[in-house]
């Protein structure tokens, strides 16, 4: 099923269908993870892959259009690279210990300690949570920081940090009152929908300048 979906993803040229199929692919992967008893991973995959990223891709499609352009260059070299990389990866898996073998190294390092002792040491039944939040707290802190950094990157790239949207002034004002009070007050004056169109045009023009310069 995953392979069929992946092939369809490659063949399709309509990006809207591709976004939907990518979501389906994620959902199928989530099912696969569930059958492998990794419910936490499956949950994350379903929420991220099938949920949020589909919405973000659709948001991007609304900006760039729904049809993929026809490729001009031949795809022989990329195909060779992909096949080569794939075969190297498959070759790498030949050395791996057999799947599900209790004698695997992964089951003999810290895993027995976590499985047997986390109930006493941490006091919560879900081992995944105790590993994530307590034993591997540094990693999770780093992960959270990565997510935060991703937000900063997206805002820098997409221009969310600059006051050039229609509602830019509203946002700036809201942010100021936000910082002052700490809760989420509603902006006092009317929303951006009531802004005069003249101001909008001016700002759009300013944005064009920013792009040009």
């Amino acid at each position: 099923m995953l392979a069929i979906t992946a092939l369809a993803l490659v063949r399709l040229r309509n990006l809207f269908a591709v976004a939907m199929l990518a979501g389906i692919y994620s959902l199928l992967s989530a099912g696969l993870f569930t059958t492998l008893d990794a419910v936490d991973v499956a949950f994350t995959e379903a929420a991220v892959g099938a949920g949020i990223s589909t919405i973000l891709v659709l948001g991007t499609l609304a900006l760039v259009g729904h049809e993929q352009k026809k490729a001009r260059r031949s795809s022989v070299i990329p195909l060779v690279v992909v096949v080569l990389t794939g075969s190297i990866l498959v070759y790498g898996t030949l050395d791996m210990p057999p799947y599900g073998d209790p004698a695997n190294p992964a089951h003999h390092h810290v895993a027995p300690h976590y499985l047997e002792e986390s109930e006493h040491e941490i006091g919560i039944p879900n081992v995944v949570t105790s590993v994530l939040a307590s034993y591997r707290g540094y990693d999770t802190l780093g992960e959270t920081t990565v997510i935060f950094t991703a937000m900063v990157g997206v805002l820098l790239l997409m221009g969310g940090l600059r006051k050039r949207e229609n509602s830019g002034e509203t946002d700036a004002e809201t942010r100021e009152s936000e910082d002052a009070s700490g809760s989420g007050p509603v902006p006092t004056h009317g929303g951006s929908g009531t802004d005069p169109p003249k101001a909008d045009g001016k700002k759009t023009h300013g944005e064009g300048d920013a792009h040009g310069g």
Binding site: I55, G59, I147, M158
Partner: peptide, 27 residues
């Protein structure tokens, strides 16, 4: 700690969505 993760993920996801969706209005 989980509360912190929740807050960050929530804020980042909505901020990203705003960034993508707000772009369309500019055009």
């Amino acid at each position: 700690v989980e509360l912190g993760v929740l807050t960050t993920v929530f804020g980042v996801m909505v901020a990203m969505f705003y960034a993508f969706a707000g772009r369309r209005q500019v055009r």
